[in-house]
Design a protein around this nucleic acid. Structure first.
Lengths: 205, 205, 205, 205
DNA sequence: AATGAATGAGGATTCATTCAT
DNA sequence: AATGAATGAATCCTCATTCAT
């Protein structure tokens, strides 16, 4: 009659735990996140976490791998599938990024990695390898190709990549960090459009 | 006679402790920074910290106020002193920022604020009020003036401010976060120059 | 058809589990022995242990009863079967003990009982009742009989029992405890022979 | 007016903590000893232990070093100071050992080392180096000298050392382990005397 | 009969904070 | 004013035990 006290759901547990962990890590950072809270949000006990993850750091790694890394692949496919003029790609890419950032806690993860990189260098390394280096390579490659075609001005493609996406990333961090602290909200989509226009054609009239 | 075991140095103590705290906070983040280490770097004992600061958070606030905030004023004075065409200001401003970031741990502080904003909302608020809002207002004001003079294209000045400084800030965070994790080093000065040129005249040829 | 995933082996299970438990207890002691390891060495799952034993202590008790106690009976039969001069019995008994100790983990068990006696007084009691008191009674009885026949000098038979077997037991504990810690190996058989000769005839020339 | 909540007594703390630790280790063994109990018996808080000892194992090492090792030196001095016939030395040495064992928890320490040697090999090594190897060398040396003088029969001196002290050590372990479990008490002094007589002159009439 | 996922109490360790000196 | 010994709450992790399957 009564509900069983718990159920066996080995299939779903890791996913659920990762989801809960992402939430808590995003809210608290790595060091301040308490495993007890992760467990309770995942609807399991503390001990259960250790059935699926060696320790806290291992859990964090899993979150990075399963939550953020896949989105880079998504964008990469979007980009590589088409062969359009550079300007068109950029005008599609930046809003697409704003959109993804709306659904996936990419900003929260970035915040964590930034905040904890010194204390847990391996985390930053994992994140760099799985996410950042991929993303930068993707964008720099795009720019290089456009330079070869004579579309884009000369210059270091990696630095141009920052010119392209830096403002959006800062907007993301703004949203995560400063809005809760009283900063005026930022419309990421508007930022994406306005920045794309400006950076392609120049700020000057 | 023998030296007294310690001396009254109530005047200098806070500054020295703040300097040590900045170092440690910058290296470890807020939560992982140990007061014992701060005390030892400041050449005092743990107990002494509590003579000058109510608690860890209070110490952090003091660091933000005394170390980072003044640099915004520095830039503001630099900018407001001159009345040059927008392009020239930008070409001077961005490298100047890169320069300041080389000597003052502005990146490290940003990292901390980003990393700990949720756990210590007051810190983010302090930082926003004393640093970010000032900086953004400065740059947005600059842009607005230039728009009024017809130098800069139409658009939300606050978003353009991100277009201008976002890449530099990201470069800063890159240096702080990803270089130690194996990311290729970034030359902030080169980034400042290249970005200034590109964003003023446009990426497209 | 396919093999069933597991088979009814209620007959053999307890023995197999005890054997595995003896191994692990002998290696780790009682507190540090993990039921998971016992289960895995016995080729069953953790839960299965609880089908046969109430808890860890109960399992330990079973190990003592089934593994060590029988060996006392073995020796008793050996001894009671014969009616030889005391010296001959001793010269046969001590090497026999050394031999048994080579095949049965009597030293390991002693180590455990010694190490855990305070935490699990019942274990020590069980061990005392089933093993030690029997063994001591056997030897003391032997001595008493020999004293009655005028073969052995006057004195408390129980203390003489220690004189007889104490060195061998210490040799056993040495082998279990100090050899792994770098102590020079001890040849139990040689010890048995040399001790028998010396203790019967006296150390002095 | 009111008692201060605690006092600064850095000089005495380590000694007091070691004494408390010895008690608890002797009662519970290493693994089962709770630091909280050690702290409370020493009249300090858990945290204080860590001011003086790196961790639990370090505390144990200190106990061995400070409590047991010095007693070997004591006996050694007693023995080396005299040049008496072997029989006289033995008749003095064994009761002396029984006496020391009455005041110093040498038996309890032996029990711990025996019980935890596998899980903490370093402890057994420390104990072997500081205590056992010293003691054995002392006794074996004594025997060797007596053999050279023609007082003692031929044979491996190290094994004879066990013949000499093994029964006493077993008596000690008996007292620690089996008496609390219901074993009949053993009079160590009587054992020392009776064993000395028997082993020197032989059990046989 | 057997499994192994899930539990949760228990213990070692850390460190911000207090306070006797 | 300064110290640093002492505190104890907080948290990660382990593992004997339970119980849904």
């Amino acid at each position: 009659m009564a509900q069983p006290r718990w159920q066996r759901r080995a299939e779903d547990r890791p996913r659920e735990i990762c989801a809960a962990a992402l939430e808590v890590f995003a809210e608290k950072g790595f060091a301040a996140a308490r495993l007890e809270e992760i467990a309770s949000r995942a609807g399991v006990s503390k001990g259960t976490l250790y059935l699926y993850f060696k320790d806290k750091e291992d859990l964090f790694r899993a979150v990075v791998r399963d939550t953020v890394a896949p989105n880079v692949a998504t964008i990469r496919h979007t980009v590589e599938a088409v062969d359009l003029p550079f300007a068109q790609i950029v005008r599609a890419l930046l809003p697409r990024f704003a959109e993804i950032a709306g659904t996936v806690p990419i900003g929260a993860m970035a915040k964590i990695v930034i905040g904890e990189s010194r204390n847990f260098p391996e985390l930053a390394k994992t994140y760099y390898d799985l996410v950042v280096s991929q993303a930068i390579a993707l964008i720099a490659g795009l720019i290089e190709k456009a330079q070869a075609k004579g579309e884009v001005r000369a210059g270091d493609p990696r630095l141009f990549a920052l010119t392209l996406v830096g403002p959006l990333l800062m907007g993301l961090l703004w949203r995560e960090t400063l809005e809760p602290a009283g900063g005026a909200p930022i419309d990421l989509h508007q930022l994406a459009r306005q920045h794309a226009d400006a950076v392609l054609a120049g700020l000057l009239v």
